[in-house]
Structure formats: structure tokens, C-alpha cells
């Protein structure tokens, strides 16, 4: 909850005419809901709330959490990234095909995979900033291009393999805590601090809040926006590498399952789709909630169809709650 309090402070300094009010409490509510779900699941399936099971849940959540960080940053500048699904897959496929199961090939493979994220982010940013293509169209097209390129490159059959080291990172643990959870915690801490307190974070929020004012205040808007898309691309690539390592191989379409949940998590976490307000703390809470909800539904042997319906209704309920809590404020959503 202290994270939420601090968020209020920053909002007051960056946009004093707005009072954050109850809307900022939504991430806290999501955490409460998540705890409620865990308590409920423990009754239905004893052992659910055990430390080791919760760690497994966090490990599952970490992949979505990392992708959603990129999406958060892009949405903070008022954009959206639909390309992360196949940037993730393309990076994973290239990674395994260069790595070939050898630790020796790891640096080259990781560099090549991350280069895909950087390149696609640069092109996305260039198209959006310089060619004034709508972000949704630009990144949709990039998603198609990456999909086609991956199919052509692999011929439909991704090959290669992951190396022991990266496999250990994605699946192993230290003192009962999975390495992925440690990694996610470190990344999340850095991201939350950087978005709220660093010069870069303040510029992100300023550009998203009002690009004209930020431009007149001497901020290089174009560089900030392009940088956001590059960052999102890198996060997708890194997640692709780690998720391939977790799954034991890269496979076509592995990124699709992350695309819409990532957008939902960012919005549920309280980041405005129009930019300028929000942060990663809320996204983390929403990722927890989404992961625990879907796990509980699976344990409750709810059919896949019903799970989709419940997920949709939960997203709707959360945005409506957000809207109602924000009523009376000068709220751009």
C-alpha cells in the first residue's frame, strides 16, 4: 500500500490540478481480491496457499509481468504495442536457433534476439513519430511483419535448443525462491523507482500527459516516444528468451497468449490508455490478480469457455469500478 501512497505524491507534483482520490486505490483492491482468491482456493484445494505453490504462481506471473512492463511504458506515453506477441516469438525462435543448446553460444544468441526487439521498437517508434502512423496500426503491421518473417525463417518448424544456463535461470530456484521471481522483483523495483523518480520517468509521464507542453518545456518528445517502443521491444525479446527456456523450446505463436492479458493488466493497474498517469506498481498487482484468477479457475475445473467469460467479466468489472471510483475527478479516462 505504501507504493500506492507514493504514487499519489508523484501525481500531485506532476499534475497538481488532479486529485488521485480513490482510483489510485484500485491496485490495492486487486491485491485484496487476490488474497481473497487465495484464501478461497486454500479451502477448496488445501495446499494452494503453501509457500512453494505461491512461488510457482509468482514464477508463472513473472513472464506476463515482464511483457506488461514494456506495455506499461508504451501506454504511459499514450501509445499501445500490439507487436509484442510476435516480437516475443521471433526473438525466442532466433534465440534457440543460434543457441543450439550450448552455453557457449548464449551471448551471441541473446544479443541477436534482443536486437530484434531493439530493431522492431525503432521501426515502430519511427513510424509513429516521424510518419505519424497511428500506434495501433503501426504495431499491428509490425506484428504481421514479425509473424511472416518468423514463418519464413523457420519454414514453420522452429528448431535449435536452449542452453543449460538459461534453462536453470528460467526454471531453477535459490533457497526456495525461483530465479525468475528474483529477477522479476529486481526489475519491478527498478522500474517502479525509475518511472516515478528518474528524469526519464518524469519525461515519460510529461510526454504522455501533454506532448505540446512537454515539447515546449524542452523535452525531446520524439526520442522519449521512440525510446518507449524500443524498451517495449527489448522486454518482449527478453521474455521470449526466458519463456522459451521455461517451456524447453521455442514454438510458433508462443507470444499470442501474452498480448491481450498484458494490455488488460496495464489498464487494470490504473495506467491511463491516454498516457501521462499510472506506473508499474499497479500493473504488477493486476498481473498477480490475473494469474491467480486463471489458476483458481483451472483448479476449480471450470471449462475453457467459462474461464474466458469470467476473465472478460472481471476485466469489465475492474474498469467500471475504476471509473466509478474516479468519478468527480478531472479524469481523462
Amino acid at each position: 500500500m505504501s507504493l500506492v501512497d507514493r504514487q499519489e505524491d508523484v501525481k500531485e507534483t506532476s499534475a497538481p490540478r488532479r486529485t488521485p482520490g480513490l482510483a489510485a486505490a484500485l491496485p490495492g483492491l486487486l491485491i485484496l481480491f487476490s488474497i481473497g482468491l487465495i484464501v478461497f482456493a486454500e479451502r477448496v484445494a488445501p495446499g494452494f496457499a503453501s509457500a512453494s505453490n505461491l512461488m510457482q504462481l509468482l514464477k508463472l506471473a513473472s513472464f506476463l509481468g515482464l511483457v506488461a512492463l514494456g506495455q506499461t511504458v508504451v501506454m504511459l506515453v499514450g501509445g499501445i504495442d500490439l507487436s509484442l506477441a510476435w516480437v516475443l516469438t521471433a526473438s525466442a525462435v532466433l534465440f534457440t536457433s543460434i543457441c543450439l543448446g550450448q552455453d557457449a553460444n548464449l551471448p551471441l544468441a541473446a544479443a541477436a534476439a534482443i536486437a530484434i526487439g531493439v530493431l522492431s521498437g525503432l521501426v515502430n517508434g519511427f513510424g509513429i513519430v516521424k510518419l505519424r502512423i497511428a500506434p495501433i496500426i503501426m504495431t499491428l503491421a509490425m506484428n504481421n511483419v514479425m509473424l511472416g518473417a518468423t514463418l519464413v525463417y523457420t519454414g514453420g518448424n522452429p528448431g535449435g535448443g536452449i542452453s543449460p544456463f538459461i534453462r536453470a535461470v528460467a526454471t531453477g530456484s535459490i533457497a526456495g525462491i525461483p530465479w525468475m521471481v528474483v529477477l522479476w522483483a529486481v526489475v519491478a523495483f527498478c522500474a517502479i523507482v525509475a518511472i516515478r523518480y528518474s528524469r526519464w520517468g518524469r519525461r515519460l509521464l510529461a510526454v504522455g500527459e501533454n506532448s505540446r507542453v512537454s515539447f515546449l518545456s524542452g523535452i525531446n518528445n520524439d526520442a522519449i516516444v521512440i525510446g518507449a517502443y524500443v524498451f517495449s521491444g527489448i522486454m518482449a525479446s527478453v521474455t521470449g528468451i526466458l519463456f522459451a527456456a521455461f517451456s524447453g523450446a521455442s514454438f510458433l505463436g508462443m507470444g499470442d497468449q501474452f498480448l491481450l492479458p498484458a494490455i488488460a493488466a496495464v489498464v487494470l493497474g490504473g495506467t491511463s490508455m491516454f498516457g501521462g498517469r499510472g506506473g508499474y506498481g499497479g500493473t504488477v498487482a493486476a498481473v498477480f490478480f490475473a494469474t491467480i484468477l486463471s489458476t483458481v479457475l483451472v483448479i476449480g475445473s471450470i471449462s475453457a469457455g467459462m474461464r474466458n467469460v469470467i476473465f472478460g467479466v472481471a476485466v469489465l468489472a475492474a474498469v467500471i469500478a475504476q471509473k466509478l471510483l474516479a468519478r468527480g475527478e478531472d479524469q481523462s479516462m
Binding site: M273, V315, V319
Partner: peptide, 13 residues
């Protein structure tokens, strides 16, 4: 509500 998030939810439903 923002159209993209509403229709994302109804899409899932």
C-alpha cells in the same frame, strides 16, 4: 470507458 479495453473484455466473453 475506453473502447479498446471494453471490447477486449467483451472479446474474451
Amino acid at each position: 470507458l475506453p473502447p479498446i479495453i471494453v471490447t477486449l473484455a467483451t472479446m474474451s466473453i
